[in-house]
């Protein structure tokens, strides 16, 4: 809770206050699937913040919910007032699947269109497309990769893009070695009445997941794999200004 209070002070209001554009919102809820049909991947994900009574559109998360399990929602209200899913939108937003079972709940479109799928900015090109060589000069640099709450899984069209950019740079820069450090947000925080803390061992699991991917993409590279069972928020742009997301990371540090 102390950590949450600190974060709230650092990054704006928590979910218990009226959320306006730019405020941070964080809650736990069972996901609601609204079956809109504007083509592929156009269904809507909604979540109700029990503390405020607000229903939010959380569909813009890179990692979508599973209707069988509760989700941790973290985001900011969008500056776009449109409600294609019938609720104000959190964007940026992250949803993480928790282990708490939920009753499946699907509601009809009720006239809402949902969103036609648009390829996200963070998508990688096929291997047949040559990656541009990043410009030098090259010096020590850190590449973060981000995760769901308490998970070590490489998030599609988010982490693969981050890793791809890192690997393209590393191939060009040819550092002497890499230090891969996994972090975990282990300090307990109460969200929607639920105490949440990442397992300390997820820091190591994340580091090893990224290290294995790097071994495959950069065969023979010298690599130290480490873990830190605690994490401070960062202001890295690819965490989209979400402090909790920035904590759940692996850092790939290239050393010369």
């Amino acid at each position: 809770m102390k950590r949450l209070a600190v974060l709230a002070a650092l990054y704006g209001c928590g979910s218990t206050q009226a959320a306006e554009a730019g405020d941070l919102v964080r809650f736990v809820a069972c996901p609601v699937y609204r079956d809109t049909d504007s083509g592929k991947k156009s269904g809507c994900w909604l979540g109700d913040d029990r503390d405020t009574g607000m229903r939010w559109d959380v569909s813009q998360s890179p990692y979508k919910p599973d209707w069988n399990y509760a989700m941790l929602v973290e985001g900011r209200p969008s500056t776009d007032a449109a409600k294609p899913c019938g609720a104000p939108t959190l964007d940026p937003v992250r949803t993480s699947r928790l282990d708490t079972p939920c009753v499946q709940h699907m509601i009809p479109a009720e006239g809402f269109t949902g969103r036609k799928f648009v390829l996200p900015r963070r998508n990688i090109a096929p291997l047949s497309v040559t990656r541009p060589v990043p410009a030098g000069p090259y010096a020590e640099r850190v590449f973060p990769v981000y995760f769901e709450f308490d998970k070590d899984f490489l998030v599609y069209q988010y982490d693969d893009w981050l890793v791809d950019n890192a690997v393209t740079w590393i191939r060009a820069a040819k550092p002497k070695r890499l230090i891969v450090t996994g972090f975990a947000a282990t300090e307990p925080q109460v969200v929607s009445g639920v105490t949440l803390a990442e397992r300390p061992e997820v820091a190591g699991e994340r580091a090893e997941a990224i290290a294995e991917t790097l071994r495959r993409l950069l065969p023979g590279i010298v690599m130290d794999v480490r873990s830190e069972p605690s994490a401070q928020p960062t202001d890295d742009a690819e965490a989209d200004g979400l402090p909790w997301q920035s904590q759940r990371r692996v850092e790939i540090r290239a050393l010369f």
Binding site: I124, L127, S128, Y156, D160, R216
Partner: peptide, 21 residues
């Protein structure tokens, strides 16, 4: 097509013979 296996959450495994994905 792509260097990652999104279903497993890793880069593709490498061929033990030629080192390619």
């Amino acid at each position: 097509g792509f260097p990652y296996d999104p279903k497993q959450g890793y880069a593709l495994p490498l061929d033990p013979d030629d080192g390619k994905p």
